[in-house]
Design a protein around this nucleic acid. Structure first.
Lengths: 120, 120
DNA sequence: TCAATCGCTACTGAATTTATAGCATGAAGA
DNA sequence: TCTTCATGCTATAAATTCAGTAGCGATTGA
């Protein structure tokens, strides 16, 4: 009766927004290319297990609507879990975070490069 | 006369959507956490220099509106340039792409992990 | 019972993305 | 010159997503 139209959550092997091939990387881009997805994963790994509201605070007070949506997606993707100590990154989520870390370092260099290039 | 309200493009050192700290990684997350941003960078590095329409085709025919918007952002970010041979990744863009590559490999493992976990 | 915290939903309006059509420019040919 | 074609890109409207705010039901503790 109350068929909540569940939005398909991107998973490798399935067509996703913007790619019908089902290439895993495209599913990942779809999942991570949503507002706050990477930020939440980042916070969760930096801060450790957190409650919903703590996470919200870490993420500059993003709306609970979005936080909850992202958390559902991340859980469906097997990256995050919700247990005793609140939300925490699963092994897969930690692996992915480790791939994000070098991007953090790169971003610093990027900032410097932009400074020396542009003069605005 | 026609003061087009230019959307601020995320750059490290400046407050961005969802983060007032100006942390470079947050600017990067903001930039890349937009639909198709990573996909375009991926295509540009995989396929080499491409015209607007080629790029559009690679990206499953995304709308020119979004493609143009993303390209402007990526150009402002110093990742992509538009020259003789069409659009192409700049050194910074290639560096960032190199950080995306391991994510491509990881995504494959991710897909396998999901298969063996979930049974739907 | 009261207050405080938890995860989370409802609702509304704003922003972003999509889809489609089509314009202006320039090169190449007839 | 007059098409024809490809280029990059804009205009418009509809659909989707996100943000901001209020608040609910459950739990915990005083």
């Amino acid at each position: 009766m109350n068929e909540k139209k569940t939005k398909p959550i991107p998973r490798p092997g399935q067509p996703v927004r913007g790619s019908k091939t089902g290439e895993p990387i495209m599913a990942l881009f779809d999942l991570m290319g949503r507002r706050w997805a990477m930020g939440i994963l980042w916070a969760l790994n930096k801060q450790g297990p957190s409650t919903f509201r703590e996470l919200q605070a870490y993420c500059d007070g993003l709306s609970p609507t979005v936080l909850n949506t992202r958390l559902k997606e991340l859980r469906a993707a097997g990256l995050v879990d919700h247990g005793e100590c609140g939300y925490q990154a699963l092994p897969l989520g930690k692996e992915l975070f480790e791939l994000l870390v070098p991007m953090g370092r790169w971003a610093v260099q990027w900032g410097k490069a932009l400074e020396s290039t542009k003069t605005d």
